[in-house]
Design a protein around this nucleic acid. Structure first.
Lengths: 302, 302
DNA sequence: TCTATCAATAAGCTCAAACTATGGATCAGC
DNA sequence: GCTGATCCATAGTTTGAGCTTATTGATAGA
């Protein structure tokens, strides 16, 4: 009883249980037969009951042995699988990744995810969407491993890398006079009510988003505030006003809305991946690296 | 890689993962700290990845380590449970017992089972009912561990022990003239059609069963043959004739049937437990031993 | 009765897991 | 900034558990 069981005991037991012959089992295990007999005897002492009934001519399992055999086999198999799993997690081939992202990056995130999960099918990705502040907070308190935001600035604790850049476009109702063409000058929208998220939701993002209007000398006044792009676009489609949006949120437009390219100096929104500085887990590297192939495509806006 | 993993590695790993401190974990394991460091290092080499990130001031789990910890704990727990289970099976405290019994002994078997499964709640009892020949065949070919039969003779391969004895009683329709009393002389049933199982189903049992009639000088002629007692009794209740039955099959009678004690020299049916000779498993001994307390009760016929 | 088979036992050896002692890195406090 | 405490890693030594070979003992078949 003071003797502790070891996997050796299980491996030897399974071999004997399968061969029902100490000599052959020993051969299979590449040890001599007495060593095997000794170890099995030891195991029986630990368990407290006979596992084999041996005569000098034959070996067979006792009931306890028969009950133990599948369990021992199972245990060894599970252990092997668990070791393998741990190895895969360590190499970043498996595991779980918590990704927090801003809702307006949904399209780009989903493209990126598709690329990533092809490469790492055994990684479970958990998604959390929210506003920029939520995303960064989740990252800092460790709830998320990666944050995906727009146009954030580097901080001491957070490292950024580019996921994609995209231009801004105008979204206007189909009955709008400018809706005939494919392009529009921002100045042509000066008289229309602007539908956008509140500046308080993200100063930097708001300023970038309204840059095309300010470039055209318009005094930006938000007529209708909405917290998410889907609602903004629905309001445009209802004819309540116009909006300026990052390209990717306009890929799917409802019937009443139309997308126009903006004339004038190009302004881009940069979608960034944020990680905690010093977090060099292979899984993270793999996630970031997965962007490289997609980046070009996302930038073209298709 | 040529190094094989052992349970020691798992035990040590779990200790360190829980303490997050090599010194304390070593203390808990009753070994010196360097030995622990060495074994953990070895485990990491086997798995192929780091399981702990150590600085000289702190120890924390890597992702792989965090993934492995619950699995290792689980594995150790399961192994302990499996060892315990094997021990219980070996001592006859758990396991599975296949019991084959003749249908006419159902009442007694169920009483016996209740007593047994109180004592051995972890033993799974599998029941198979059939005719005497089925029961004995199942026992001999190893499909059953115990057979319960009536009045069988010892054979070389089969050992018998008494489970219960019970007297025979008469079963008659309620409109029968003798149904007024509590007792009847077998001779009073001479004119009634006899309902019973065919002699071919069990010569010895048949002869015992009809002994009361033959004692009364009746020439036994079965008017209606049925293979099971339930049907026989239903036929009696329907007024088709009378029968002689072991007490226990008459404990529950339908409306039209009545049980009468038989006058004359008492004849008993002995219910026997049959086991393969030399089968001395503790579980069997326990099953047989469980009868002792019930035997007296069964004999009184209550 | 003899021989072959096969598990158990005996005795010696070997290597790995343990120990003790020490080194090196980091943090707290005067 | 130095000193002491803490704590993991390394080095060298020791011990014992598991392996080996040789042998015994039991059983079945010729």
């Amino acid at each position: 009883m003071d003797q502790r069981i070891e996997l050796r005991h299980l491996r030897y037991f399974v071999a004997v249980a399968e061969e029902l012959h100490f000599g052959r089992a020993a051969q299979r295990l590449h040890i001599a037969q007495p060593a095997l007999s000794q170890q099995i005897r030891q195991l029986e002492k630990i368990v407290g009951v006979e596992l084999f009934r041996r005569t000098s001519r034959s070996v067979r399992l006792t009931e306890a042995g028969a009950a133990f055999q599948p369990r021992a086999r199972n245990l060894l198999g599970r252990l092997a699988a668990d070791l393998d799993e741990a190895g895969r997690v360590g190499r970043g081939e498996a595991g779980r990744l918590d990704v927090a992202f801003i809702t307006s990056a949904t399209a780009i995130v989903s493209e990126h995810l598709r690329a990533f999960s092809c490469r790492r099918p055994d990684v479970q990705v958990k998604l959390h969407d929210g506003f920029t502040t939520d995303v960064l907070a989740a990252l800092e308190r460790g709830t998320a491993d990666v944050g995906i935001v727009r146009d954030a600035e580097e901080r001491d604790a957070i490292e950024l890398s580019l996921l994609a850049s995209e231009r801004f476009v105008a979204v206007i109702p189909t009955e709008h006079p400018a809706a005939r063409g494919d392009r529009v000058e921002a100045g042509a929208l000066a008289a229309d009510p602007l539908i956008l998220f509140p500046r308080s939701a993200g100063t930097h993002a708001f300023d970038l988003n309204t840059q095309p209007l300010r470039n055209a000398g318009i005094d930006v006044q938000v007529a209708q505030e909405c917290s998410n792009w889907h609602t903004i676009i629905m309001f445009v489609a209802a004819g309540l006003g116009v909006s300026i949006a990052p390209y990717s949120v306009t890929t799917l437009l409802p019937a009443g809305a139309r997308r126009l390219e903006l004339d004038g100096p190009p302004t881009v929104s940069r979608i960034l991946m944020a990680t905690r500085r010093g977090d060099d887990r292979p899984l993270l590297q793999a996630f970031i690296a997965a962007s490289e192939s997609r980046q070009a495509i996302a930038t073209t806006g298709r």
